[in-house]
C-alpha cells in the first residue's frame, strides 16, 4: 500500500478516533473542535511552507473569520450562512493583502504578515465603539440550517462541521499539492528564477496559495467563534500566529495529516499540562518543540511516515 493510501486510511481512522474520544469524554469535544479548527488554519500555513515561506501573521485571518461571524451573527444567525460569509471575507482580504505580500520572500514575507496582523490587532483593540475592544464580542446563539439546537446538539454539530471541513480541506490540499500549482510551490522554494524562464509567474502561484491559506484560516476562525461564542482581539495577537507556526512544526509539513496531528497533540498537551502543572505548561510545550526540532525535523507526521516507509520496504 502506498503512503498516499495509508495517509487516506489514517485520516479516516483519525476522524473515527476523534468522534470516539468526543463520545467517551464529552468535555474533550470542545478541545477537539478547537484543535480541528487550528489544524485547518495550519493546513493553510503548510501550503505556504511548501514554497519556503513562513507566515508569522496568519492569526490575522483567524481573527478576521471569527469577527466576521461576530459582526454578522445578529443579522445572519445561522452557521450555514456565517461560515461561507467568513470564508468569503477572508478570501477577499487575503487577495488584497496577498497581492502585496506575495512580492516578498522569506523574512520579509514573514515579518510583513506579522506586522499586518498586529495592525489588525490594534484596530480591534482601539476601535472600542465597533469591536468592544479587549472585552470582545459575544456571539449570540446560532441556528444551523434553520434548526434551533440545544447546547449539546449545537456542540456536536459544530464539532461535526469542523471534522467535515478538516476532511474536506485535507482532501483538497492533497489534490492541490499534487497538481502543477502545488508542485510549483516547491519549485518556488528550490529555484524560483527557473519558473519565470518557463513562463510561470511565481508570484501568482504564491498568491493562489496565500488566498487559499487565508480562506482556510478564516474558516478556522469562524469555527472558533461558533464553538467559543466569544471573540477577542487576542485571536489576532502575534502569539496566536506563533502558535500556528508551532503546530505546523510539531505536526510536520510533509503531509496534510501533519497539521491535524500537530493541532490535536498541541491542544491535548496544553490541556493536560495545564491541569497537572498549571504554572509550567508553557515550559512543557517548549520542551516538546525543542525535542521535535532536535530529533524529528519532519514533525510527528515525518516520524510516522518514516516508520511506515521502513515497514513498507522491509
Amino acid at each position: 500500500m502506498t503512503l498516499r493510501r495509508i495517509e487516506l486510511l489514517l485520516a479516516l481512522l483519525g476522524a473515527g478516533a476523534l468522534v470516539l474520544a468526543a463520545m467517551t469524554t464529552p468535555w474533550l469535544k470542545f478541545v477537539l473542535t478547537i484543535a480541528l479548527a487550528k489544524g485547518i488554519a495550519v493546513l493553510g500555513i503548510m501550503l505556504l511552507l511548501r514554497a519556503g515561506q513562513v507566515s508569522f501573521g496568519h492569526a490575522l485571518y483567524v481573527a478576521l473569520g471569527a469577527y466576521a461571524v461576530a459582526f454578522l451573527a445578529p443579522v445572519l444567525p445561522d452557521a450555514a450562512l456565517l461560515l461561507p460569509a467568513a470564508a468569503l471575507t477572508t478570501a477577499v482580504v487575503g487577495t488584497l493583502i496577498g497581492l502585496f505580500v506575495s512580492r516578498y520572500r522569506e523574512i520579509f514575507f514573514g515579518m510583513l504578515n506579522l506586522a499586518l496582523s498586529m495592525v489588525f490587532y490594534s484596530m480591534l483593540e482601539k476601535f472600542y465603539h465597533y469591536t468592544k475592544g479587549t472585552d470582545g464580542i459575544r456571539v449570540p446563539p446560532l441556528t444551523v440550517a434553520g434548526l434551533e439546537l440545544d447546547r449539546v446538539t449545537h456542540e456536536w454539530t459544530i464539532f461535526g462541521i469542523a471534522l467535515a471541513l478538516a476532511l474536506g480541506f485535507g482532501a483538497f490540499a492533497r489534490v492541490y499539492l499534487a497538481s502543477p500549482m502545488g508542485q510549483a510551490l516547491t519549485a518556488i522554494k528550490t529555484r524560483e528564477t527557473r519558473l519565470d524562464f518557463m513562463g510561470v509567474s511565481a508570484r501568482s502561484v504564491l498568491l493562489a496559495a496565500y488566498v487559499l491559506s487565508a480562506t482556510m484560516a478564516g474558516c478556522a476562525g469562524a469555527l472558533i467563534a461558533m464553538a467559543t461564542r466569544h471573540v477577542t482581539p487576542l485571536l489576532s495577537y502575534w502569539t496566536a500566529s506563533g502558535e500556528l507556526v508551532f503546530i505546523a512544526i510539531l505536526g510536520g509539513a510533509g503531509g496534510v495529516l501533519g497539521p491535524f496531528l500537530g493541532a490535536v497533540t498541541y491542544e491535548l498537551v496544553r490541556v493536560y499540562a495545564a491541569a497537572t502543572v498549571a504554572d509550567m505548561w508553557q515550559m512543557i510545550l517548549g520542551a516538546v518543540l525543542l525535542l521535535v526540532i532536535l530529533f524529528a525535523r519532519g514533525g510527528i507526521w515525518g516520524l510516522l511516515a518514516l516508520r511506515l516507509q521502513r515497514r513498507g520496504a522491509a
Partner: peptide
C-alpha cells in the same frame, strides 16, 4: 520535465495531477 510541459500548456488547474 512535467512542470515545464505543464507551464507550456498553461494548464494550472488545481485538480489535475502533475
Amino acid at each position: 520535465a512535467a512542470l515545464a510541459i505543464a507551464a507550456r500548456q498553461g494548464i494550472w488547474s488545481p485538480f489535475v495531477p502533475l
